[in-house]
């Protein structure tokens, strides 16, 4: 079981902050994230493609979207941001 948190405009668009899922890799996670989002917001504009474009961090460190996951991992998904 991993915990997934969404950030940035992805969170505002989906209305999903956090949920738990069974996934062995980030790749496996994408359809589960989309399902969670659609359950909350059926008419969401978020797609699996837009999820794949997000940056991924596991346990606080940025990782490749191909990274494997372990039980208890904390996964962040967030679109790129700038400007300060």
């Amino acid at each position: 079981m991993v915990t997934v948190k969404l950030f940035g405009t992805l969170r505002l668009d989906s209305g999903v902050r956090e949920f738990t899922a069974e996934a062995a890799s980030v790749k496996e996670l994408y359809p589960l994230v989309l399902r969670e989002i659609r359950a909350k917001k059926a008419d969401t504009a978020v797609t699996e493609r837009s999820l794949r474009a997000c940056l991924v961090a596991v346990n606080g460190e940025q990782v490749s979207p191909r990274a494997k996951l372990r039980d208890g991992d904390l996964v962040y998904l967030f679109p790129a941001v700038a400007g300060g």
Binding site: F78, V81, A82
Partner: peptide, 20 residues
């Protein structure tokens, strides 16, 4: 950035990314 992130989250939107 200028059409989505900044209008919707402002510069405040950087906090999470900076954390990571």
């Amino acid at each position: 950035l200028t059409g989505e992130q900044l209008p919707r989250l402002g510069t405040a939107g950087l906090v999470s990314s900076m954390q990571v």
